[in-house]
Design a protein around this nucleic acid. Structure first.
Length: 437
RNA sequence: CGGGGCGUAGCGCAGUUUGGUAGCGCGCAAGUUUUGGGUACUUGAGGCCCCCGGUUCGAAUCCGGGCGCCCCGACCA
């Protein structure tokens, strides 16, 4: 074997990682998340709004997606994978072929002269509705909740802000089908809770607001999940002291205000707190807009043929990754919460080639591996300044700093990236702390 | 889709006003040096100057036309 098994999985030697960090970043990618993620070698931009995920970035993206997956599974949703390539016909069925302006349309004519007859999926009501409909005949078959995590395509008029607004991006989209409105309403509330769990686990719990927003064409209102950020594109008004808000687009709406402000009286909206925010999730009650378009029906308890009511629930892992980078980085680099960091700890061997430092570092690396703690070992023979700076840029939650000076007195250093807090302790104590739950 | 800016080495930039066939920093290679917060120095490799056309003895530079990128706004199931 040319590589030790650990490089395939939980462990990585920085000397083996093909990406590198950079001091400078592209001037044409100005947002903080794009700058930091690019400089640290997490992502690479191919074109406006289209990024490739490098090993470190892919690990973080994967962790975010797994958190979302766990929370969706926990409310009884089942995972599927639908295609990106759609026939024109299904978009004609819902009359959205010409209405959805972000729809990428393709021609399957190999001469390139024919009409467009394919689309790249920007959303999947058109595929999920007939798919689920084929399995639903009775009220006993309902409810159904399915989701997928998949790459979406939207021809944004202006892709920008790094991972925050892409033309190709990762999306978790869930669709629910119910026998009646009450069942939809109940599931909708559970979905809100599941979403809040996701934001909490990725470290955005405190700054993410459940926001009353416009419902668009399907229903009067929808709910957005908005993470407070000066870089956000949306303006929301928060009810002070709470995690609820109302989007600027419906601030004039008295019904909406009554819904979020307890004992609302006219004028109370002046007390709301205006904030900029990034939309990190959006859920809707769709009613029967799609189920009736595709003639999906079921026989209810009373023998009547009815149309299921639907909900849809979007959450973009790549945008979420950008939002975390955007709101948690500092001048030194990224700062990842443990649940989404590509590795929990970065081991810095300050003096590669020094027998004791090499030994202690290898020892720490092996023991962390054995304990199931994901670790990245900086075993490059570079000056310490570079290694400290790089590790700060990568943003792993913990740094285990091992060098000759400390080893002389039997100590290593453990640094917490987020706080900068450092402590000197024995290697065993440090390993125990890292492996501790 | 409006307004503004930009496109020169892998990356960040200068050079364009006043045409004379390219330069700096980072990174990269070799070496000396240094060693607990991006060490200092030496040498070297690396460029269809976004594309197409025009003017000219000669174009990164001037003129036409494309394409692409970023920022502000519009837009954003």
């Amino acid at each position: 074997m040319s590589h030790p098994p650990e490089t395939q999985d939980a462990m990585m030697r920085l000397s083996q990682l093909f990406t590198k960090t950079s001091k400078e970043s592209s001037k044409s990618d100005v947002s903080r998340n794009a700058q930091l993620l690019t400089r640290a070698g997490y992502v690479d931009r191919l074109m406006a709004g289209v990024y490739q995920y490098l090993p470190l970035g892919l690990r973080t993206l994967g962790k975010i997606e797994n958190i979302i997956r766990e929370e969706m599974n926990a409310i009884g949703a089942q995972e599927v994978l639908m295609p990106s390539l759609h026939p024109r016909e299904i978009w004609e069925t819902t009359q959205r072929w010409d209405k959805v302006d972000v729809l990428y349309k393709l021609s399957s004519d190999r001469e390139g002269r024919g009409e467009c007859d394919l689309a790249l999926g920007p959303t999947h009501e058109e595929t999920v509705t007939p798919m689920v409909g084929g399995f639903v005949q009775s009220y006993r078959d309902l409810p159904v909740h399915v989701y997928q995590i998949q790459t979406k395509f939207r021809n944004e008029p202006r892709a920008k802000s790094g991972l925050l607004r892409g033309r190709e991006f990762r999306m978790k989209d869930m669709y629910s089908f119910h026998a009646d409105q009450a069942d939809l309403d109940a599931f909708y509330d559970r979905a809100i809770q599941a979403y809040l769990n996701v934001y909490k686990r990725v470290g955005l719990g405190e700054t993410t607001l459940v926001t009353f927003a416009s419902g668009g064409v399907f229903s009067k209102y929808s709910h957005e999940f908005q993470t407070i950020s000066p870089y956000g594109e949306d303006v929301v008004y928060r009810v002070p002291g709470t995690h609820t808000a109302i989007n600027k687009e419906v601030i004039e709406d008295t019904d909406a205000l009554k819904d979020i402000i307890p004992n609302y009286k006219p004028g109370d909206e002046k007390n709301l707190e205006e904030l900029k925010a990034i939309e990190v999730g959006n859920i809707f009650k769709l009613g029967t807009r799609f189920s009736s378009a595709f003639n999906v029906s079921f026989t209810d308890k009373d023998g009547q043929v009815k149309t299921p009511v639907m909900g849809c629930y979007g959450l973009g892992p790549s945008r979420l990754m950008g939002t975390i980078a955007e709101s948690m980085g500092d001048d030194q680099g990224l700062i990842w919460p443990e649940e989404v960091a590509p590795y929990k700890v970065g081991i810095i061997n300050l003096k590669v080639g020094h027998a004791e430092a090499d030994k202690a570092s290898a020892d720490a690396y092996a023991k962390l591996n054995a304990a199931g703690v994901e670790a990245l070992l900086d075993d490059r023979d570079l000056s310490v300044g570079v290694k400290f700076a790089d590790m700060d840029l990568l943003g792993l939650p913990w740094q285990l700093i091992i060098g000759p000076r400390g080893l002389e007195k039997g100590a290593v250093e453990l640094k917490q990236r987020a706080t900068g807090e450092r402590s000197e302790l024995s290697l065993d104590a440090a390993l125990q702390k890292l492996a501790g739950r």
